[in-house]
């Protein structure tokens, strides 16, 4: 009984205190958000990061620190995927390709066309359009060798377009199934 009364008093005090807070112009405590996932270029973590602990670590390492932390692991993975890797169609060595990919940011042009790759060398890695066949580009760079002709069964997945047409106007993505 006594306990209930005390509890009631406390409750009253709390209500008064909180209503006081409302009247004050006290700023609310800052709400912070902590990183859980990140990505830029498609399928990089999927393809190049293999250990479960590394996948979460890659997702929470700022891009400015990713290269130092992951380039050598990416190179090991690249050579496991393609033991015969020498260079690729961009002329990149294993160290150069994985050095580029380990820092997972998407370069975007603010002045010209924007595409992952559209056959025009100057436009390479200038963004990512909805219809870019990004997987074929990555497969070619990993498996295609210096001329793109190596490992022909591995350099394209033969899925060349989305299953719905995109819109030319906002919001660009197709309606859901």
């Amino acid at each position: 009984m006594k306990q209930i009364k005390i509890f009631g008093l406390l409750l009253g005090a709390v209500i008064i205190a909180s209503s006081c807070d409302k009247d004050d112009d006290m700023p609310a405590a800052t709400v912070y958000y902590e990183q859980q996932d990140q990505m830029a270029r498609p399928a990089i973590n999927t393809v190049f990061v293999t250990a479960a602990g590394d996948k979460d670590a890659f997702n929470t390492t700022p891009p400015s620190a990713q290269g130092a932390a992951f380039q050598s692991k990416f190179q090991t993975r690249l050579l496991a995927l393609n033991a015969g890797y020498t260079t690729n169609a961009l002329g990149q060595t294993a160290a150069q390709l994985t050095g580029l990919l380990a820092t997972d940011v998407l370069g975007v042009s603010t002045t010209g066309p924007t595409t992952f790759f559209d056959g025009v060398a100057a436009n390479t890695l200038s963004g990512r359009k909805l219809d870019d066949d990004v997987i074929d580009v990555e497969l070619l760079l990993i498996f295609g060798g210096p001329t793109g002709a190596s490992n022909p069964g591995l350099t394209k997945d033969n899925v060349n377009a989305n299953d719905k047409a995109f819109s030319a106007s906002f919001p660009y993505l197709a309606t859901p199934w």
Binding site: Y33, Q36, V105, L106, G107, S126
Partner: peptide, 13 residues
Amino acid sequence: GAINVWLETKKKI
């Protein structure tokens, strides 16, 4: 010219 872009998801702590 060019910018670098990446997407993050963050959870309230």
